[in-house]
Amino acid sequence: MSFNVENQIALVTGANRGIGKSIVESLISHGAQKVYLAVRNIDSTQALVEQYKDRVVPIQLDVSKPSDIAAAAQVASDVTLVVNNAGVLELARPLSENFESAFAYEININVLGLVKMAQAFTPVLEKNSQDAGAAFVQLNSVASIKNFLDLTSYSASKAAAYTVTQGLKDELAEKGVHVLSVHPGPIDTDMAAQVGMEGESASVVGDGIVSALKAGDFHLFPDSLARDFGGAYQSFAQNIIEATVEEA
């Protein structure tokens, strides 16, 4: 199911910095009509508003708060593309004392936040898909298919989010909504710096999303490390993850 971002109206969670900000920039540069900047702190979007004027609309949205999500779905009732980028990361190994608290925090944002976003915005996307289609994009990670010891709780939360994304792919296809699962490796963001990793420019994610949506892909491995993962994973992804139950 191909989706062209040109002239579309999008909403991006966590849009004020890092990958989210880059996604906003890529969508606008590829012709998106308007982008809702869904953030916890409206003031953090000032630079984007100054740059893009009325092509961006800041709205309050904390994905841990169902009331925020419901209100955002009412305000952004014209969206045809939702990019759920907001996520959190804690350093926690399996035997770390903070594993339980870290995992609960990450599950609440990375998994339940995704579910709540999908539940609130699917009716909006379905309604608006009649003319030019609609799409839902979830930012997962290479950590969703390969555990990294120091990021064990995060990897587990992203593996769960990836599983939910697969379910959304099947359920939303029936409603005319395309789903894309994005699996970056290290990207030059505050989150990468938190774990002491250097990464590629966040623009590879934003531009990759635009291209993957147009191609009708389900998986996107946007950067060089992610593409190595994607190459090794490709056969399993095509023959198991993307196949129907009958085909698998």
Rank of each mutant, 00 (worst) to 15 (best):
I145A: 10
N84F: 11
R55F: 07
D131L: 12
V124P: 08
H183S: 15
V164L: 06
Q46E: 13
D170W: 05
V164I: 14
Y105S: 15
Q166K: 00
V57W: 09
N84T: 10
A72T: 14
I59H: 08
F121D: 07
A173H: 06
L168C: 07
V83M: 12
I109T: 14
A70K: 15
A143W: 02
P184M: 06
G87Y: 04
K158V: 08
M117K: 11
A102V: 04
S77V: 04
Q46T: 15
Q74Y: 13
V111M: 07
A143I: 03
T152Q: 01
R93G: 06
L95H: 07
T80D: 04
M117A: 07
S101A: 05
V179Q: 01
V79C: 15
G113A: 11
A135Y: 02
S144L: 00
S101V: 09
A159L: 03
D68P: 14
V83Y: 10
I107N: 07
I107Y: 09
P186A: 15
A70L: 14
A72M: 14
P94T: 08
N147Q: 11
G87T: 09
V164R: 06
I187T: 00
A71W: 12
L91M: 08
E174D: 12
V137H: 05
I59M: 10
S157R: 03
Q60T: 14
A132W: 02
Y105G: 08
A71L: 15
T165F: 02
K169I: 02
T122N: 12
I187S: 02
D131G: 06
V137G: 10
L139P: 01
F121A: 13
I69P: 15
Y162I: 00
V56R: 10
F99V: 08
V164N: 00
P123M: 06
E174C: 06
V82G: 10
G87V: 09
F121C: 10
L180K: 00
S64I: 11
L48Q: 01
N128L: 03
P186E: 08
L172C: 05
Y154E: 01
G113L: 13
F99L: 14
A104L: 09
E100N: 13
N128V: 01
S141K: 00
L91Q: 03
E126L: 09
P58E: 07
A161F: 04
G185R: 05
E171H: 09
F99R: 01
L114D: 03
G87L: 08
Y162D: 12
V142Y: 01
K175S: 09
Y52W: 13
K53Y: 04
L139D: 02
Y162W: 00
E126A: 15
L91W: 05
N98I: 04
K169R: 13
A72L: 15
S155F: 04
F99A: 07
A159H: 00
V79T: 12
P66E: 12
L91C: 00
S181N: 08
A120W: 12
A104W: 09
Q46V: 10
R55I: 08
V79P: 08
G185V: 06
L89A: 10
T122Y: 07
L151W: 03
Q51L: 05
K116H: 14
S101D: 05
V177C: 02
I145P: 03
R55T: 07
T45S: 15
S96L: 01
Q60C: 06
L114N: 08
A70G: 11
S144H: 02
S77D: 15
V111E: 03
T152W: 02
F136D: 02
L89C: 09
A76V: 10
S144C: 03
N84P: 01
D78E: 13
